[in-house]
Structure formats: structure tokens, C-alpha cells
């Protein structure tokens, strides 16, 4: 699902110069912004499906309290996207239901 973003750029906003991958699709990000912000700029759709009922959710509080923005970042599941700054080359996956157990370390 890739609904249009519900945000647009403010006047004078810096260019989106970073490139992240979301489920294999490139997503552009501005230096200094959170992964959640980049996802919201990319799409207005859900960024995960809840473990309980499978309902779609998107980043909500943007300050680390609601845990609705959980995504997998560079292989680490259940990361709060609003608390992590976007970095060039980050690989992000939407989470469908509960996380999986990691491989044996």
C-alpha cells in the first residue's frame, strides 16, 4: 500500500539527499530527520501490521512513547523509527505481525 504522503515540504526545506530502502523501494530522507519522518514523507499508508489483529498502523506520537512506528532496521526488528536518525543506505522493512526470533548468534 503506497498512499500519497499526508505531508509536504515546508518552504526552504533542505533537499532529501539520503537514500534508504523500504521493502526494496528507495525512500529519500533529509539529513537530521528520523526514519519515521522519512516514511511519512514517502507514503501515507501503514508501516506495520499489529501482532494482535493485523491492523495497519503508521507512526503516531513521533516522540518515542506510543511504539506504533516499530519497523525492522538493518535486520533489527521492533525498532522505534521515530527515535532513529535516517542514514544513507539503511534497509527498512515493514513488520507484518509479531517479530521473528533472530538467528543463532
Amino acid at each position: 500500500m503506497n498512499a500519497a504522503s499526508r505531508f509536504r515540504d515546508a518552504p526552504g526545506a533542505a533537499p532529501r539527499s539520503l537514500r534508504l530502502m523500504l521493502d526494496g523501494v528507495p525512500v529519500l530522507a533529509r539529513p537530521g530527520e528520523s526514519v519515521a519522518a522519512a516514511l511519512l514523507a514517502h507514503s501515507g499508508g501503514a508501516t506495520r501490521q499489529t501482532p494482535v489483529t493485523g491492523a495497519g498502523r503508521a507512526p503516531y506520537c513521533m516522540m518515542g512513547v506510543c511504539f506504533d512506528c516499530l519497523v525492522t532496521i538493518d535486520g533489527h526488528p521492533n525498532v522505534q523509527a521515530c527515535m532513529v536518525s535516517a542514514r544513507e543506505g539503511m534497509v527498512i522493512q515493514r513488520q507484518i505481525g509479531a517479530r521473528r526470533l533472530g538467528d543463532q548468534p
Binding site: F7, R8, A10, G32, A58, C61
Partner: peptide, 22 residues
């Protein structure tokens, strides 16, 4: 639902990302 947020969350996006609600 996706598409609902607190107003302060949108303000954080304005401050930190230069994004404004459409």
C-alpha cells in the same frame, strides 16, 4: 488509523524535518 496523529507530533515533523501537514 494511519492518517491520524497528535498535533504535537505533526509539530515535531515541522521542527525536525521541514515537513508540513497537507
Amino acid at each position: 488509523l494511519p492518517g491520524l496523529m497528535p498535533a504535537g507530533a505533526a509539530q515535531i515533523l515541522m521542527k525536525q524535518s521541514g515537513m508540513v501537514p497537507d
